[in-house]
Amino acid sequence: MLKNKIALITGSTRGIGRAIAFNFAQNGATLIINGKSVDKVKQLSKELKNKFEIDVHEAVFDVSNYDEVKNGFKAIYKITKKLDIVINNAGILESSLIGMLSKDNLKNTYATNVDAIYYILQYASRLLARNNSGSIINLTSIMGTNGCEGQSVYSGSKAAVVGITKSLAKELADKNIRVNAIAPGFIDTDMTKNLDAKSFDMRINSIKMGRAGTAEEVANTALFLASDLSEYVTGQIIGVDGGMLL
């Protein structure tokens, strides 16, 4: 479904990013995988190459560091010359009540969850525009669309992703670049494994389908948005939450 497409996936070494990498690899995409750790990116690259007959390029940079993103894209340009799909997946989640919110929490969360998307898309949109087509998929969260107590920083950062998505969908539509976002609910990943049993149960009880989602289920939605199956879909925030109520 993604043969001859080149996809950049930020934060692809674990969780949802990793699941998207495997899903896209299975569907024939050429991958540019990203993470901050050289070892983890190399390990993922090895796993993908062993399992699938695809090209995998390694892009080790911190998405929240402007200069690293700039140099990363120059390296990507030299290797692939083009880009078709961008998944802005890298993100961090730190819980904090408003009265106990540290400046570092605020700064780091917005740097990774918001600023990084601008850095990436400033360069990526120009590469996509050269093909006069492309699909950008931003990972937001049900917390960004509905809010969540104790998560005002994370929720605020993810709400920003909604605004960025809808604005860029309008700005880039004439270049045939589609911009959508996925808003996962409670997904079984490393991020959610840290919850205590009581909080975990409370979350599950708020989901109409009665279970946590999987990273693979989110990846399937990313596949739909990345592929031509969604060629007339832009500016949408797609919930993958099993009917979760927040």
Binding site: K70, F73, K74, Y77, Q122, Y123, R126, A129, R130
Partner: peptide, 18 residues
């Protein structure tokens, strides 16, 4: 301007900084 940038990058095979 953005079209111009794209054409300059294509024409001279470079990637410009923001």
């Amino acid at each position: 301007h953005m079209t111009l940038i794209s054409e300059l990058e294509d024409g001279f095979d470079i990637m410009l900084d923001t």
